[in-house]
Design a protein around this nucleic acid. Structure first.
Length: 463
RNA sequence: GGCGGCGUGGCCGAGUGGUUAGGCAGGGGCCUGCAAAGCCCCGUACUCCGGUUCGAAUCCGGACGCCGCCUCCA
């Protein structure tokens, strides 16, 4: 049984799927108007880990995540760059997938684009108008938040208090500052679509309702995203579905921020680092490990120091892979399921420990602690020539792979000159010519290798 | 103003009313020709003040500090 913190009720609850053995999950995707930043990286990693784990645990997970290719930000960017909206969206969507591929994130089962669902959005807006929960004013169609009795459920406070604190700029004729645009009346020079209620373009909050219901059906299991989407975006999505009497997400989950120092990292604050930059200078696995090391609902700090820390921890894991020649298992397309793996008694114990942690609100730090402890145990067993060592090490590798973390067992390509130095060093060591041996080692280190002596002589791997 | 979260050893970061988190860094030892990797040992932490309790970092009350949401944002 999966247990997960449900933001709509404020506690960890049993995640009982709509259809037994299946999970229908919707993750709010990015608006593609700029390079992804570190926060997007965490967003992708957290839910990739969850999805992989649930799949590993035997669920048939259907994972849908959209691309918002229709939005004010894209229009602004297009103006600024003298490009079309379509070009901007295509450019940054490509950057998005390339970053996610580098992170080893599995592609969603479906990736709906907002522009492909405009007709369905128009239909939804018509229904909302017909039901009397939407109204038309000069600049568009608005949703009447007062029409939904439990509006504010996701925000955790009633409509009145939200209204009291509203910082939204006042739009003339809006009935409440909380009312949001379903349809923005066409403006000259901006993309627009014909609709019975006048040409224009859909507001942001409508696309996800339409696409999630279209691809996952009513009453789907989980809707997730960053904490900043909890209100108003998710609240507004839910409001639209509820207003039409359509069962929406059964559960809601939100992950925490990436911090820049003491502040939330965000586009509007301008204090962000692009994910693309990080990936160019660090092992992408280090970011995944960093994400795994903290609980998904807590803030994390991604800095040169914390990444370096993670990279050293990663080296310990790769060290295990080297010693036991573990296969590289994860990767974007490698899926594993627990039942298809042969577990030794020690491995099974570890699997159960990891499962207990992850099934309780995705406690990845606890799971990782168990795995790191097992790393030490596997080494100790091997030192004692206990034949249970290998199976335990394999279990560690399999479980890390289940979380999307792949280990590297060896040096990829050893060039000819390095191979020559290795042979020379081994020869020198055989004749106990330590000065020569050390010289060759220095040469190898200078070529970027980490040199280790094993039973078979000099072994190399990349730092 | 309303609502929510957080404050743990040098750093990162979990957690249960009493028993080892884990990683990184650091110290000592073993192994090694020397290293590297690995193993063993080591710090006895929990913002502060009260309270409940045989016993609290863990429960309750209060104080202080920090962060976030109520506008676009993963």
């Amino acid at each position: 049984m999966i247990r997960l913190y449900d933001s709509s009720v404020g506690q960890v609850v049993d995640l009982v799927p709509r259809d037994e053995g299946r999970l229908a999950v919707y993750l709010c995707g990015p608006t593609v108007y700029d390079l992804p930043h570190l926060g997007h990286g965490r967003h992708a990693l957290v839910w990739d880990v969850a999805r992989r784990w649930w799949t590993f645990s035997g669920y048939d997970v259907r994972f849908v995540s959209n691309i918002t290719d229709l939005d004010d930000k894209i229009i602004e960017r297009a103006d600024h760059d003298h490009a079309t909206e379509g070009e901007i969206a295509a450019t940054y969507e490509a950057a998005w997938w390339s970053a996610l591929d580098a992170l080893g994130v599995v592609r969603p089962d479906a990736t709906p684009h907002a522009t492909a669902y405009v007709r369905e959005m128009i239909e939804l807006i018509e229904q909302l108008l017909a039901s009397g929960v939407a109204y038309s004013i000069d600049d568009g169609i608005y949703f009447d938040t007062a029409a939904v009795p439990d509006y504010g459920r996701l925000a955790g406070q009633p409509l009145e208090s939200l209204r009291a604190g509203a910082r939204v700029e006042v739009v003339a004729d809006k009935r409440s500052p909380l009312d949001f645009a379903l349809w923005k009346a066409a403006t000259f020079g901006q993309p627009s679509w014909a609709a019975p209620f006048g040409p224009g373009r859909p507001g942001w909050h409508t696309e996800c309702v339409v696409m999630s219901l279209a691809l996952l059906g009513e009453d789907f299991d989980l809707h997730c995203g960053g904490l900043d989407l909890r209100f108003p975006h998710h609240e507004n999505e839910r409001a639209q579905a509820v207003a039409l009497g359509r069962p929406f997400a059964r559960h809601w989950a939100h992950h925490g921020w990436v911090m820049a120092g003491e502040e939330k990292m965000s586009k509007s604050l301008g204090n962000y680092t692009s994910l693309t930059d990080l990936l160019a200078s660090h092992d992408p696995r280090a970011y995944r490990l960093l994400v795994l090391r903290s609980h998904y609902r807590q803030p994390i700090e991604v800095s040169a120091a914390t990444l370096a820390d993670a990279e050293r921890a990663l080296a310990r894991l790769d060290g295990l892979a080297r010693r036991f020649a573990l296969p590289t298992l994860a990767g974007p397309t490698a899926w594993a399921r627990a039942e298809s793996t042969a577990w030794s008694p020690e491995g099974e114990e570890l699997r159960a420990e990891v499962a207990a942690a992850l099934d309780e609100d995705l406690d990845t730090p606890r799971a990782l602690a168990a795995l790191f402890e097992a790393v030490g145990r596997a080494h100790a067993l091997a030192d004692a020539e206990d034949d249970r060592a290998e199976a335990l090490a394999e279990a560690v590798g399999a479980l890390l792979a289940a979380l999307g973390l792949s280990l590297r067992a060896g040096a990829a390509e050893v060039d000819q000159e390095s191979a020559r130095l290795v042979a020379a060093r081994d020869a020198a060591r055989t004749t106990r010519n330590w000065a020569a041996a050390d010289h060759y080692r220095d040469e190898l280190v200078a070529r970027g290798w980490v040199v280790e002596d094993g039973s078979g002589g000099t072994r190399l791997h990349r730092a």
